[in-house]
């Protein structure tokens, strides 16, 4: 028997915010929204299985159609049930991402004022269409470029089915172009995402965060 022993104190974990910005416009109806819902459930299961990530990861969910709704404020992933999404309306993509950026800044401020350590927040946009004509994609592209460049957040976009790659690429930071989803493989994507978040919440150096290689769910190489 090992003579060494000793109790550990009850320390809290530092937090990592991930804002999911999800397109529920009418074009997502049918197999796409069903796959997305299943992917979200699988994502929650994968994170909960990871002891460290489950105690560090806060998820926030914003959905958008003709309007934008924040349906899940930032919370540890094992403290809420994943919502079941239904489709409606058009594609207020820019408004939704702007809400996510605002939420990131608010949460960071809250972390700071309450004395909590945090990892760089990430925003994940999933869309199958292109933004409505009244949406300011040039302005959003600039905000994302500056936010990523100044290390305020990480931004990734996933394109579903017949998404407009050129417009989505315009919004994304050049270092992280949009990733096309292969055959509605949301579950594979969310498994990759949970692994990536796992890597981020355990990473040592903030200057360069390595995410796992993609496999299966996209046709592109990162």
């Amino acid at each position: 028997m090992n003579p060494f022993g000793g109790e550990s104190p009850e320390n809290y974990e530092q937090k990592c915010l991930c804002v999911l910005v999800l397109d529920i416009s009418s074009s997502m109806q049918g197999a796409a929204i069903e796959s997305l819902n299943q992917g979200l459930v699988d994502f929650q299961y994968e994170v909960i299985k990871d002891y460290t990530a489950a105690n560090r990861l806060e998820i926030s969910i914003i959905i958008f159609g003709s309007e934008v709704w924040s349906i899940q404020p930032p919370a540890l992933v094992n403290t809420f049930d994943m919502p079941r999404l239904t489709t409606r309306g058009t594609t207020k993509l820019v408004d939704a991402v702007r809400l996510a950026i605002g939420q990131v800044e608010d949460r960071k401020l809250w972390y700071k004022t309450t004395g909590q350590n945090y990892y760089r927040p990430m925003i994940i946009l999933i869309t199958d269409g292109e933004p409505d004509n009244d949406q300011d994609i040039n302005g959003l592209a600039m905000e994302i470029y500056q936010g990523v460049q100044n290390k305020r957040f990480l931004f990734y976009a996933v394109g579903v089915q017949n998404y407009n790659h050129a417009k989505l690429a315009h919004i994304c930071h050049p270092a992280t172009p949009p990733m096309p989803l292969n055959k509605l493989q949301f579950s594979a994507f969310f498994k990759w995402l949970s692994n990536s978040i796992g890597a981020i919440t355990k990473s040592k150096e903030g200057e360069k965060i390595e995410i796992p290689p993609v496999s299966g769910w996209t046709q592109m190489e990162l």
């Binding site: 000793g6 550990s8 104190p9 009850e10 320390n11 809290y12 974990e13 309450t114 909590q116 350590n117």
Partner: peptide, 19 residues
């Protein structure tokens, strides 16, 4: 550090995390 040091506690009165 989380095993051997008190390094991230919560002060209920001040509503603050501290090291």
């Amino acid at each position: 550090e989380k095993s051997a040091f008190e390094c991230n506690l919560f002060d209920k009165e001040k509503n603050l995390y501290y090291d």
